[in-house]
Every structure is written in structure tokens, then in C-alpha cells.
Design a protein around this nucleic acid. Structure first.
Lengths: 235, 235
DNA sequence: GACTGTAACGGCACTGCGTGCCATTGGGCA
DNA sequence: TGCCCAATGGCACGCAGTGCCGTTACAGTC
């Protein structure tokens, strides 16, 4: 149930890559339209495929199932999110990386607000999609946990701290995002949403305090150097 | 997909309540046995029903679906958990209630360690059950969030704090539980598991906020020193 | 003790999801 | 031109889940 289904298939023979992307888009469009107009349970895969102009069998070559056509970009999103973590400078405080990563995901939802709003309505009306949505958050939480754990090896209760911090950040992200969506997913609402999310830093466990203590210490040092005059050998 | 399916049906005519409970147990036993021996995907509902000595149609009168036969007690567990919250003295600190509630759930897993271990293996081997498990955690998190929100009305960022705290507690619970299960779900492991979970209190927002205030104070002091100090130019 | 209402069961039939298999098509590439 | 291979279409199959209806068995009533 977790294979990619649609691996880019290396060498690009046969129908062009643009063709595949086009079919995919047609299927997603058809699915969202039909779900919105006739309801999710009332729409069959046959309907979606027919509306997109392909065979039923082809639908299952693009999506693992009917539910996947609603939010088909989790795979790609997770990949990009992972890149954010791995590209982060090792010296950057954990908290900073984690918050930046979460805001990166936030921005991906912001990117096409219309689609986000449509999916939000759909997901909150259909029980099966709600379950799916909840389950689809897990890989994100796992990704956060994994990278946090990597930074906390050896620390006291590192595993626990990683799990708790990841859960907290993801929860804050979702809370902020849901509020934004519920309020209409407007352009003006984006910044308040970001701010609301960022306030999770005030609630974050010891990691936050540790990092900030570290920052404070470095600032104090800097101030001290400053107070002692320009004697220190800083270029 | 979310109706109870098995409402106690008020007046108890026809087959006795004991009869129903017995059939239910037989179905769960048959399901777990078959899943363990022949694999989850390879076991059909027909197989389970036949092994339990009832018709296929009857299975669906006890469970919403094949997946529900693995962990059929979530409904009851949620009810009991809700009772813990509502029975709590209004004067008891939020943190105390929340930790007690989570430990209550922990104790329910401890109650029959054998079944917990079997289900743990099963859930972590079958993808469909993993998804189900992840989704089934959501109602618990929601319950924690709801009761926390009730205690935090009016507080600054009450919604956010409720969501984050609930997520943190649930994550800590699951982390401790998973570790216990992975280590064999032994009797001796129970207390360490409880202790491990309780350490989440050290990571919870309230303390962190205090720390942050401290950090802010030190920063303010530093800035003040800087402002008062000799306005030496850039080093 | 026969009668009746009702809860639980059994057995069908049906829809629809997801998959395996194979033939067909059509665009690169030698 | 002919081969290769990716993508598709179409068919059939197994199985999950649901609706419907007849049957069974128990409980209370007369």
C-alpha cells in the first residue's frame, strides 16, 4: 500500500513526460470536480476515469486508490521537506531548522490556496478522507522526529524529546493551518497564520530554552567583547 | 464508517448479552490467530467468520470491517478516558489531570500485555493496520485537546497551547508505550515505561515559558549594558 | 402452553475497489 | 524499416462491505 505507483520510470520512452503529467492533472481535476458536485461516496473510479478521458485501469496506474486523488502531492512534499532538513547548516540551532521546515510546508499550502480550500472542505465532510488525512500526517511527524533524534543523540531522553518536539511542531502547524483554512484561506490571513504558528516556539520544550540560552550566552559574549572595546581580533 | 455498529440495543431480547460477548470474543480470537498464522492480507472475512463458527454477514454486525477486529476496544477506551477527565476535580492542575489520563490509557495496555504484544507485532507488519493505528490515535488526541481547551479558555493562545500540549502528551505516551512493547512488554518494564512517560512533564510548555522569560531577562540586561556602555564603534 | 414481538442470525445478491494479465498502440532509437 | 519499450485499454477475478429478506430463538403476555 506504500509503493510509489508512479515512479518516473527512468528512461522516458513511449508517451512523453508532459503527457503523463497532463493525464495526471486531468484525473485530479476530474476527481475534485466530481467529489465536490456529486459527493465522494457517490463518485466511482469509473466516473473519474471517464471524466478524464482514460480507462478505469489507467486511474490505478496514477494513484494507489480513490482517496489518493484528493491529495496526490504528499510524496513530493515529503521529499522537498527532507531536503530542507538535509540542506540545513549543521551549526543552525535545532529549533530554527524545525520551525523553518514547518513553515516551508505551510508555504506549500499557501502556494495554491484555492486547491487547499477545496481539499479542506472535502476532507472535513467525508469520514474516509478524514482518516486518510490524519494518517497522512504521520510521515511528516516521523520525518521531524527522525531529524530531531539525529540532533539529540546522547542527550538525556533524546528519543522522548525528539518525539514530543516533533509532535508539538506538527500540531502547531496543523492548528494554524486549519484556522487559516477555516477562515477562508485568504491572502491576508497568511501572515497571521505564520505568526500563530511561530508562537509555538514559546511553548516548546527544553530544546527551545537550550537553544535560546545558547543564543543568549553568545550574545552576552558578544556584548562583553563589545564592552571591552575593539581589541578582540574580529575581522 | 463511524457508527458504533454494536450498540447494546437497549432491551435485550433474542440471544443473551453473554451470547453476544462470547461471539465477539470468538471473532477476535479467530481473527488474531488467523492473522498471526496466515498473514493479514491472506485472511478473508470468510475465514474469520468460519473459524468463529458464524456466518460472514454476522462478522459485519460486530465490526465495521476487517481492520476493526484487531483493536476492537478503542470505543470503550475513549469512553473511560473521557470519564477520567470529567471526574477530575476542577481545582486539580491541568498538567496533573492530563498526565493521569495518559497513564490511565497506559494502564489499559498494561492490563493484558499479551494481547498488546500480539497487536503490536501485527500492526507493525501490515501497512493497512499501521495506517489504521495512526488514525485511531486521533480521537485520543482530540479528547485531550478538547479538555485542555476547556481549561485554557481566555488564556493567551489557548487553542494553540491545547493542541500542542495534547500532541506532546500523546506523543510521549506512544513513545513510552512503543518502547515497552518493543522490549517485550514485560512486567518489569511497566514501571520504567511509566517513568519514561512522566518525564514528558519536564518538556511541557509551562516550564519552558519560565525559562524563556529568564532568557528574555538576560537579553534585556545585556542590551541595557550595551546601551549604557561607551558607545564604541564597530570592532 | 400457545401467541406475539423482537433481536440476532444466515444467506443471498449486488456494487465497487483494487489487481493481474495480456493484447495493442505509438513514439524513440539503432 | 524494424525493434524496443512505455503507456494504455480491456477483461476477469477476488474480496470488502451493504441491503434485503426469511428464519430462528428467546422473552414477556394472555
Amino acid at each position: 500500500m506504500y509503493r510509489p505507483v508512479d515512479a518516473p520510470s527512468g528512461a522516458r520512452r513511449g508517451r512523453s513526460a508532459e503527457g503523463r503529467a497532463e493525464v495526471r492533472r486531468a484525473l485530479v481535476d476530474a476527481a475534485l470536480t466530481l467529489f465536490a458536485t456529486h459527493g465522494y461516496d457517490e463518485t466511482t473510479v469509473d466516473d473519474i476515469a471517464a471524466a478524464a478521458g482514460v480507462a478505469r485501469r489507467t486511474f490505478f496506474r496514477y494513484f494507489r486508490g480513490k482517496e489518493d486523488a484528493v491529495s496526490p502531492d504528499h510524496e513530493a512534499c515529503l521529499t522537498r521537506l527532507d531536503a530542507v532538513f538535509t540542506a540545513a547548516h549543521p551549526g543552525e540551532p535545532v529549533l530554527s531548522v524545525v520551525l523553518r521546515a514547518a513553515e516551508f510546508v505551510l508555504d506549500m499550502y499557501f502556494a495554491d490556496a484555492d486547491a487547499s480550500r477545496i481539499r479542506f472542505r472535502l476532507v472535513h465532510e467525508v469520514a474516509a478522507l478524514r482518516d486518510r488525512e490524519v494518517a497522512s500526517v504521520h510521515p511528516y511527524r516521523q520525518l521531524f522526529t527522525r531529524h530531531l533524534r539525529r540532533r539529540l543523540v546522547g542527550a538525556a531522553d533524546g528519543e522522548l524529546r525528539a518525539a514530543v518536539t516533533a509532535a508539538a511542531v506538527v500540531a502547531a502547524h496543523n492548528q494554524a493551518l486549519r484556522t487559516w483554512l477555516a477562515e477562508g484561506a485568504t491572502e491576508e490571513g497568511k501572515q497571521p497564520c505564520r505568526d500563530r504558528f511561530r508562537r509555538v516556539a514559546d511553548l516548546l520544550p527544553v530544546e527551545a530554552a537550550d537553544d535560546l540560552f545558547d543564543v543568549a550566552r553568545r550574545l552576552e559574549d558578544a556584548v562583553e567583547r563589545l564592552e571591552r572595546g575593539p581589541a578582540s581580533g574580529r575581522p
